[in-house]
Write a protein that binds this DNA or RNA. Structure first.
Lengths: 152, 152
DNA sequence: ATGGATGCAAAGCCTTTGCAAGCTT
DNA sequence: AAGCTTGCAAAGGCTTTGCATCCAT
């Protein structure tokens, strides 16, 4: 990013500041499912004077202008994913809690049709699969915490 | 529900109480995306002595035994859906905020395959489509709040 | 000079938990 | 009797907001 995002923001009526640039850059350098705290930590590594609220507000701004969107991986913390061009889904391992991405282009095509038959114009997709990953199956999954199963 | 759930819980080591029965029954009488507050309100209509924490804990219990699962429709409130036998997805209208269900059996089949090729054993699916519904398209979507687009 | 942006700190809100008393088994 | 449940109230924890000050335009 850099000049492009700056110009982009300007057209939207937002100003560019050193903090904002740092926050935006940091966010796009990170992976998926970024939380406010994680981004805050990363930002503070470069400039420890940046406030939490500033990070939070800029993360919201990034979403507002359509460069990212909120995601929920079920831990009660709001996370953010930059909007990718390639539709993809997530595999949530119920054992080790890892999140893996998968491409689902074919699915999205079908899903679009399904939605359109309802008069619904799709904008973005969120596809999640809960289950047990390869590694945890190998480990026989002894990470279960309670007596009752939580599966669906 | 009734005797079945009661026996089911007993086998899991949980006791049945009047409050619990009322809460369970109320939950299953409600639709999808039930929040703690909503369930609490409904329960209090029949027995205003039931505490909030009790409703909350029982909602968690319903999930724990696999009869429901948490869902997030993006308003910061945890909601609960009973686990349905028929796989389905949700259409989220970004304009009027309504949530509509769609069946996606075909998609789930494909999704299962996709996951399995990664050595991942699927347990449950969550499929969401963000977009604009028929009604809002008709209304030309004048409900937009900010200058910036929030689309993905 | 003007209005958005920032930082700090405090509010907000929903989610969880501690405890003593009450019930189901 | 034993232990899970309940209710109330308070604590937690993440998310938002108020405000005075600062900075980009």
């Amino acid at each position: 990013m850099g000049i492009f995002v700056k110009e982009f923001l300007k057209t939207k009526g937002f100003k560019m500041t050193p903090q904002r640039e740092l926050i935006f850059r940091s966010f796009f350098e990170m992976g998926e499912h970024v939380s406010v705290d994680e981004l805050y930590d990363k930002v503070r590594q470069e400039d420890s004077s940046v406030g939490y609220a500033t990070v939070w507000r800029n993360l919201k701004l990034i979403c507002k202008v359509g460069l990212a969107e909120e995601v929920n991986i079920g831990d009660g913390i709001t996370r953010y994913d930059r909007v990718t061009r390639v539709p993809h889904g997530h595999l949530f391992c119920t054992s080790c809690k890892t999140v893996t991405e998968i491409t689902v282009e074919q699915l999205v095509g079908l899903l679009s049709q399904t939605a359109k038959t309802r008069g619904f114009v799709p904008e973005s997709f969120k596809i999640e699969v809960q289950g047990v990953c390869k590694e945890c199956r190998g480990a026989a999954g002894e990470k279960d915490k309670s007596g009752a199963s939580a599966g669906g």
